[in-house]
Design a binder for these strands. Structure first.
Lengths: 214, 214
DNA sequence: GCCGAATATGACCGGGTGGTCACAGCGTAC
DNA sequence: GTACGCTGTGACCACCCGGTCATATTCGGC
């Protein structure tokens, strides 16, 4: 969707623009993000942005997609499923802890994730989330299906219900420890890693209670 | 927090301002909502808004809290808990179905709920959600505690974990059937009431599996 | 060295923003 | 009847927005 000028752009320049855009859209979301600020931070004229993308929305969509690709690449290690002999709930705790740790270490990707999940404009949100959800579901559903086949989860488990709740919990865990006002029950904001792990264990226990094979 | 002028305001005028604000903030969220538009729609001078509230943020916070109070008032019938002899999962299905039906009938309250839950600015979000969450938690936690006392839920149930997930599911059910791009698993957007009920049943079954007393 | 195409630039445009303030209108007390 | 205090008003302020475009700069082929 971006112009050929963007695709052929000098690597360093493209990375500067991308990082500035992730930071600005991450801070203020799509509609609140300022192209003036992005151009200034990237050390680039505003007019250049309109030679790379036809308009602001395409620019944001590109930034969001690029970000989701980076996240998926980094989480690939967990998508294989539990190691042989590892209980499924232990595995899920590990994976979610890794998930939280990733976003702790990558504030830029976390901010863009927040912007993606907190977008108000229905069209923008639908367009941007579509790609993100496809990436998650393509990985998560097979993971759960393999768990059923292996006997880790009950054969009659309602995987859609579990997936549905997981898709709510994942962004919550990615954001709540680092942004205020998201979790009034556990108060995840600003918690230490070991405290987060304890909460994750409680959530996983509650979540999987009806799914783990006995 | 609003000024005494607002509290003493003529009933009709206050309601006009409130409805216009709910519609505008509902459409475009806090930062995107225009005070000019609200004033015009309410048939009121913009200057008047600043005699009722000190600034835009206080205005939005008041609108959000007032909305949550109306929602809770409407849901009061469910907050008493299950009727004698009614299984707890049946009760929760009924309550959530009522919840969805309420937002189907009240697009203004639904839009404000969306704006509240999709706000990007951390300070605004924290301030606004604080009031909203307090309203919900004040009702939900006692409801679950009574369920434990009555023997509907297991005595060792992790109520915080359940509450935490419930606070994710509630806005999801309030919004996903009516706004696109929120539910990629069940595809709730645009579904009929009976289909929604079936999904709710599946979610409740999965959610309560580890909590219902046997 | 030179030319044409591609790219970079930033002043500029129309329009919208939250917030202010000098003034108008009105009801009431005396 | 008039002075006063509260409320309503909208033109106005400084500022910022996404997007444009004439011009400057760069670069590859010859």
């Amino acid at each position: 969707m971006p112009t050929s000028t963007w695709r052929n752009l000098d690597q360093q320049r493209r990375e500067r623009v991308l990082r500035a855009a992730m930071a600005e859209f991450g801070r203020h979301g799509y509609s609140g993000g300022s192209l003036n600020v992005i151009a200034r931070e990237a050390g680039v004229a505003k007019g250049s942005l309109f030679q790379y993308f036809t308009d602001k929305r395409e620019f944001f969509a590109t930034v969001a997609q690029e970000t989701s690709l980076r996240v998926r690449a980094e989480m690939a290690q967990w998508l294989a499923g539990p190691e042989p002999g590892q209980p499924f709930d232990d595995f899920l705790c590990d994976a979610l802890s890794g998930w939280v740790r990733y976003f702790a270490k990558h504030p830029l990707e976390r901010a863009v994730t927040a912007a993606t999940h907190l977008e108000r404009d229905p069209e923008v949100r639908a367009a941007v989330r579509e790609g993100v959800y496809r990436v998650y579901l393509e990985s998560l559903r097979p993971l759960l299906e393999r768990a059923v086949a292996r006997g880790d989860l009950r054969p009659d488990a309602d995987l859609d219900a579990l997936l549905s709740i997981l898709l709510l919990v994942l962004p919550q865990l990615a954001l709540a420890p680092f942004e205020p006002g998201l979790d009034p029950v556990f108060g995840l904001y600003g918690r230490q890693p070991d405290e987060l792990r304890a909460v994750i264990r409680r959530l996983v226990t509650a979540l999987l209670a009806g799914f783990i094979a006995r």
